[in-house]
Lab assay of single mutants.
Amino acid sequence: YKIYPYDSLIVTNSISVKLPKDVDRTRLERHLSPEEFQEVFGMSIEEFDRLALWKRNDLKKKALLF
């Protein structure tokens, strides 16, 4: 996945969300650098992957990456 800054990946309720063209809309968190991922989620990507799907989705919603 290509890395993008968190600010360019957050999704708000506005209709005209302009995400970069090559971003996987269903896995926005994968486009964060490991350092920024840790900062946003408070855990590593590996720890995040071990969580239940509902928990990952809940965290993504709170981080505006859903």
Score class of each variant (00 low, 15 high):
1 Y>A: 12
1 Y>S: 09
2 K>Y: 07
2 K>L: 10
3 I>C: 06
4 Y>R: 00
4 Y>D: 01
4 Y>L: 05
5 P>H: 04
6 Y>E: 01
8 S>K: 13
10 I>M: 09
10 I>R: 11
11 V>S: 09
12 T>F: 15
12 T>A: 11
12 T>L: 14
13 N>Y: 05
14 S>W: 06
15 I>H: 15
15 I>M: 15
15 I>Q: 15
16 S>H: 15
16 S>W: 08
18 K>V: 13
18 K>D: 15
19 L>K: 05
19 L>E: 05
19 L>A: 07
21 K>M: 13
21 K>W: 11
22 D>A: 05
23 V>C: 04
24 D>G: 03
24 D>V: 07
26 T>M: 14
27 R>N: 14
27 R>D: 03
28 L>T: 02
28 L>Y: 02
29 E>W: 01
29 E>N: 01
30 R>S: 04
30 R>G: 03
30 R>E: 03
30 R>F: 03
31 H>F: 04
32 L>P: 00
32 L>M: 04
32 L>W: 01
33 S>Q: 04
33 S>F: 03
34 P>H: 11
34 P>E: 12
35 E>S: 10
35 E>R: 10
35 E>F: 10
35 E>D: 10
36 E>F: 03
36 E>C: 06
37 F>R: 00
37 F>S: 00
37 F>D: 00
38 Q>V: 11
38 Q>A: 12
38 Q>W: 14
39 E>F: 13
39 E>L: 14
39 E>V: 13
39 E>P: 03
40 V>N: 06
40 V>E: 02
41 F>Q: 00
41 F>V: 02
42 G>T: 07
43 M>L: 07
43 M>E: 00
43 M>G: 01
43 M>K: 03
43 M>C: 07
44 S>A: 14
44 S>I: 09
44 S>R: 12
45 I>K: 07
46 E>N: 11
46 E>C: 11
46 E>W: 09
47 E>L: 09
48 F>P: 00
48 F>W: 07
48 F>V: 00
48 F>H: 00
49 D>H: 07
49 D>K: 06
50 R>D: 10
50 R>Y: 09
51 L>E: 06
51 L>R: 03
51 L>V: 04
52 A>S: 14
52 A>N: 09
52 A>V: 09
53 L>H: 10
53 L>K: 09
54 W>T: 11
55 K>M: 13
55 K>G: 04
56 R>H: 02
56 R>N: 02
57 N>V: 14
58 D>A: 14
58 D>V: 11
58 D>N: 11
59 L>Y: 05
60 K>S: 02
60 K>M: 03
60 K>C: 02
62 K>G: 09
62 K>M: 10
63 A>E: 03
64 L>G: 12
65 L>N: 01
65 L>V: 03
66 F>H: 09
66 F>P: 05
